[in-house]
Design a protein around this nucleic acid. Sequence first.
DNA 1: ACTGGCACTCACCGTAATGGAGTGCCAGGT
DNA 2: ACCTGGCACTCCATTACGGTGAGTGCCAGT
Lengths: 356, 356
Amino acid sequence: MELDDRKLDVLRAIVEDYVATQEPVGSKALVERHHLRVSPATVRNDMAVLEEEGYLRQPHTSAGRVPTDKGYRLFVDRLSRIKPLSPAERRAIERFLIGAVNLDDVVHRTVRLLAQLTRQVAVVQYPSLARSRVRHLELVSISTTRLMLVMITDAGRVEQRLVELPAPIDGPEVIELRQLINDRLGGLLLVETTAQVQAIHEQIRGELRGPMTALATVLLETLVERTEERIALAGTANLTRGGLLDFAGGERGHHAGGDQRGVSGTIRPILEALEEEVILLKLFGQAEQSLTRVRIGDENEFEDLRATSVVTTGYGPGKTVVGGLGVLGPTRMDYPATIATVRAVARYVGEVLAQN
Amino acid sequence: MELDDRKLDVLRAIVEDYVATQEPVGSKALVERHHLRVSPATVRNDMAVLEEEGYLRQPHTSAGRVPTDKGYRLFVDRLSRIKPLSPAERRAIERFLIGAVNLDDVVHRTVRLLAQLTRQVAVVQYPSLARSRVRHLELVSISTTRLMLVMITDAGRVEQRLVELPAPIDGPEVIELRQLINDRLGGLLLVETTAQVQAIHEQIRGELRGPMTALATVLLETLVERTEERIALAGTANLTRGGLLDFAGGERGHHAGGDQRGVSGTIRPILEALEEEVILLKLFGQAEQSLTRVRIGDENEFEDLRATSVVTTGYGPGKTVVGGLGVLGPTRMDYPATIATVRAVARYVGEVLAQN
DNA sequence: ACTGGCACTCACCGTAATGGAGTGCCAGGT
DNA sequence: ACCTGGCACTCCATTACGGTGAGTGCCAGT
């Protein structure tokens, strides 16, 4: 069935009101607030249709309506225009990001900024190693049988690993090795290095063969295969805002009534999920292009996050994408504002990175 | 007034029971569980005295007793023996920490381990730069007017900063500079470098003067003065455990009755405090010696954390202390077990660090 | 100095009554 | 064909109320 324009208007109005008040919205209040030019009874009929189609639901008979995940989805896809940021917000973003001194610093500031602006949980993935290029590889002697390998990527990320050597090595040899690996690996995408590392290893002459084996192992094992990703998080306190998530916590007596479909999430599993880097990476680290993606409620693959929505986008210098960032909040979030903010922050961060 | 032995026994019993059940404990239940060889009435008299002295309080008339912060303090100082860890726990610690590949890795594993073992919020300070020695300084050319300065400390921590040069510099000069700063700064404690950096700067000959100025500025400004500290956090989900903290969240209607002294904390301000690195550093970064320190309730300098207790200790390779770690939880935590775990983890981490 | 006994207090729990917001549906109007 | 006003109905939320029981404080007795 096709929904006519007024029904869509009603849906939009309900979403907006519900997001603002976080209380089920009834027909009467609706016509008052939004100047729909029809009577409550008419709206009720529309509501009934919208409910039948799965865009709305009633917490219980004789309560107002609440959007379903499907309702939010329609709202996001077709009913909302992305709110432009206020000048104050733009200024806040700029002020926050200039003066960053460090990649760490950039990421930290970004994630806090995002949490503050959206008043939600913010997540920023560090520039992904997989998508970065090798800028420089440094070898530092720790002892005669130990080297510290330091890799610097073009996004400014630094990664270090200890290399245990099978036999002692002297200074000139270290320099030779360093020279070699930089010549052969410098400028490559990290994913491209695998083949090169193996090539170097096979070609190498006798004396450096031993050290190179150790080095190659470390390089392959950790920097390529198990591409270590990192994540920064902020604003978890915002999970306690606005009572949508009721905090059943770990209390005792509670009417353990059968809430089958209830969206009554606890804060608990969410906090747990947020500490699982694997989960965060799946959510925020998959931004292949710089498209903004919105996952609403149970569109989410993770059980524990089915009461939340996730807004993500990719970021990076210029048009490239080196990582993802975004926010996580209750399904009843202000999507237009959130999407706008996430995008704006991503763009600014991209600019900052481009300047390095 | 002096408390006789039995009164202390009663206090201990109450603390133990309350920690276990998290419900006010009454006289009858007490004598049953612990085989005190006196009657409930006697215990009641003791309780009355303990309450008068401020070690106990009653949530309301005709409820059982609950320890006050002062009561916990006495318990921790005089009544508890630190529980030895179970073999299983020891094994868990070892298994968790071997295989760490990285300083980042060590810290991450440690903080998760600590959260898991204590079932509380765990905090680990990265090895403090202020207390570390310079192992190596690396200069990497990014462009002719930009250098990346990478500092590696003896605790394995790596810090990088971008240096903007006033004029182009060539390869040999970079090598010379690198040589110079390593010769002069290598092995020094970071706090000792200030003077050296300035000395180098003043002595340097004409050609490298310009670059050295820029380099010195960066070194002084960020690595010495604003000694950047970092913090890792885990187990925030544990804040929702055991209903001691009732989650009033941000709800509307609530009996805004005068709970004056009530320990009824919200989870909210705690989460906020945990995101303030300044606060965490004050709490966990002040372990001057490897002494274990326990801050109970309002002994805590931070308003928002007055419903929590903090157990901290220093850690580092050998006898030195390079950072702090510990846990934060409700005042009604199992102090003996927590203290034991925190200490044990700190010791193991020290050993791991010593092996680098 | 300890104990048993006893009256008293108060949170907790289940039930009942009341109020009100909101719905669904129908009959009448445009 | 669509919209509207009216009306009966449903069900949550809030308040009120009495019973129950754990726990206390105190006192008199050992």
